[in-house]
């Protein structure tokens, strides 16, 4: 029997009302994982800083890899475990660096993860944050070559199968964007730059990668939104990244091997209805994949499926999307579940 495979996308750094904060689309992923055989999703959905959830049938795929997978260029090869290499930005202060190393050690001792020795970049990465005209966050990295040299050492010398990066991000005390984010509003000001970092490594080395920012702890906020709260539990955002990478599928770049998953194996994609302009969705919409566009997960984008010629089923909520997935998997027509069902018509052959 064909495994029913769903891709869940909540694009990063566009203020998604569900999933635009501290891993707050994870409950959606948990629910979808219950109604499919395989769930493919990305770090923005599954990373909740020190919170995470083990979903045995979920595949943790970084955004650049997801785009390549959707385009049919790369396959996903599930693994039992990865040796995860850790890159620490030289710009991280000694105490903050030690916090991250202790977090990494904790995942080894308490969760049994397999980590290699770590690398400190040979120059500060110098991350700067920006906001695009659309409102999406992005950023620049002053020393991307230092990042890539570090990854090369971990892959070639330490035999790492996956790369976790901790870059020092600018502390943003008192900014309006940070204040809104802590109240569960606006756009995550860090997310776009995080994606640039992980995309660079995945594009260059074709192995799993994810990023956690290093920041000084924020002053206590009494009115903190539950959607943002997972990022204020401790000193690092690293545990969820290491957990995700420890079982992230490897990319099949050159030839097809048994057991790998390819774009044509995807049965359905779930996406916010206002954010249909990403590379992965444009690619998957060319296949026999059902696109389910969720209206009440609003974003800062204004890109519905229709003007891009994407044939999508619009639903109001993720609850409704779950119903759509269930009947799609079962081969039941949605029309049959509505009170009125019209009779068939005779098609003319002339």
């Amino acid at each position: 029997m064909r495994p029913y495979t769903v891709v869940l996308i909540v694009p990063t750094g566009i203020g998604a009302s569900i999933g635009g904060y501290a891993g707050d689309a994870l409950p959606v992923a948990r629910a979808i994982a219950q109604v499919c055989d395989r769930l493919i999703t990305h770090p923005n959905v599954l990373n909740g800083a020190q919170l995470y959830w083990n979903l045995p049938n979920a595949l943790y795929v970084e955004g650049y890899g997801l785009d390549k997978f959707a385009a049919g260029c790369w396959g996903l090869q599930p693994v039992h475990q990865n040796r995860v290499g850790l890159i620490l930005d030289q710009g991280i202060e000694p105490d903050l660096r030690l916090r991250h190393l202790q977090a990494a050690d904790a995942t080894r001792a308490t969760l049994g993860l397999n980590l290699t020795d770590y690398v400190i970049t040979d120059a500060p990465l110098n991350v700067e944050l920006r906001t695009a005209p659309s409102g999406a966050s992005w950023g620049t990295i002053g020393n991307p070559d230092s990042l890539l040299r570090s990854a090369e050492v971990l892959i070639q010398q330490a035999k790492a199968d996956a790369i976790a990066v901790v870059a020092r991000f600018p502390d943003d005390l008192g900014s309006e964007a940070l204040e809104a984010y802590r109240q569960g509003q606006g756009v995550d000001p860090l997310a776009g730059a995080e994606a640039v970092i992980s995309h660079l490594i995945v594009r260059t080395f074709q192995i799993p990668c994810a990023h956690a920012p290093a920041l000084m702890p924020l002053p206590l906020e009494p009115n903190l939104s539950p959607r943002s709260a997972a990022e204020e539990l401790g000193y690092t955002f690293l545990p969820c990244v290491l957990v995700g990478l420890s079982r992230a599928p490897q990319f099949q770049v050159t030839r097809r091997q048994p057991g790998a998953i390819w774009a044509e194996d995807v049965d359905a994609v779930v996406i916010p209805a206002s954010a249909c302009g990403g590379s992965a969705l444009l690619s998957l919409s060319q296949l026999r994949t059902q696109i389910i566009a969720v209206e009440d997960n609003q974003t800062s984008m204004q890109v519905p499926p229709e003007p891009l010629a994407i044939k999508a089923v619009r639903v109001h909520s993720y609850l409704e999307a779950l119903g759509r997935l269930v009947i799609h998997r079962a081969g039941i027509s949605a029309d049959a579940l509505s009170p009125s069902l019209s009779s068939m018509h005779n098609l003319s052959i002339y």
């Binding site: 650049y64 695009a132 003007p307």
Partner: peptide
């Protein structure tokens, strides 16, 4: 191209606005 998305659509002019890294 490292990362891109269509971020707005002008249906009258039939144009897609793209932001990219």
């Amino acid at each position: 191209p490292l990362r891109w998305a269509v971020t707005a659509v002008d249906t009258q002019e039939q144009k897609a606005q793209v932001e990219a890294i």
